[in-house]
Computed example of a mutant assay.
Amino acid sequence: MAAHFQMNDLGALSYYIGIEVKQGKEALMLGQSTYASKLLEQSDMAECKSCMTPMEERLKLMKASTVAKEYATLYWSIVGGLRYLVHMRPDIVFAMGYVSRFMEDSREDHWATVKRLLRYVKGMVDQRIVFPKTGESRLQVTVFSDVDMAGDIDERQSTSGVLVFLGSAPI
Rank of each mutant, 00 (worst) to 15 (best):
L85F: 08
D44K: 11
T73N: 12
C51E: 03
E57N: 10
R116K: 15
Q32G: 06
L28N: 05
G123I: 02
S106H: 06
E57H: 10
C48L: 05
V141S: 08
Y84N: 13
F144R: 08
I129S: 04
Y75P: 01
G31I: 04
W76H: 15
E47V: 06
Y71W: 13
V121P: 00
T73P: 05
R116P: 01
E108R: 11
C51I: 12
Y120W: 03
T66M: 11
Q127R: 13
H110R: 06
G97C: 07
F102E: 01
K60S: 12
D126F: 07
M55S: 10
W111C: 02
L39C: 05
C48E: 02
K69Q: 14
M55F: 02
I78S: 01
T142N: 14
D105V: 08
R128N: 07
P54R: 03
L82R: 01
M29N: 07
V67F: 10
I78P: 00
M103N: 12
K60N: 09
S37M: 10
K63W: 01
F102A: 02
P90L: 10
V114T: 06
W111P: 00
S100P: 10
W111I: 03
V121H: 00
K60E: 15
V86I: 15
K25T: 12
L117H: 01
L30Y: 04
E47M: 09
A112P: 01
S37D: 09
Q127M: 12
Y75A: 05
L40P: 00
D126P: 04
S33N: 09
M62E: 14
G81Y: 05
D105E: 11
L118I: 04
S33V: 01
V114M: 06
R138A: 10
L118V: 02
A112Y: 01
V86C: 14
S43P: 00
F144I: 09
Y71Q: 14
K25P: 08
R58I: 07
V67W: 10
E41K: 12
D126S: 08
M62V: 14
A46T: 03
E136N: 15
L85Y: 07
G135V: 07
M62C: 13
M62H: 08
D105R: 15
F131Q: 02
D105A: 14
Q42H: 12
Q42P: 00
V86H: 08
L82K: 01
M52R: 13
Q127I: 06
K60W: 04
V114L: 07
L61T: 08
G31L: 06
M55H: 04
P90W: 09
S145D: 10
G97R: 03
A112W: 00
E26D: 13
K63R: 11
G97P: 04
H110D: 06
Q32N: 10
V143C: 14
S137P: 06
K38H: 11
Q42S: 10
T113W: 00
W76V: 09
Y75V: 06
V67S: 15
P132W: 05
T113F: 00
R128T: 09
L82P: 00
F144N: 11
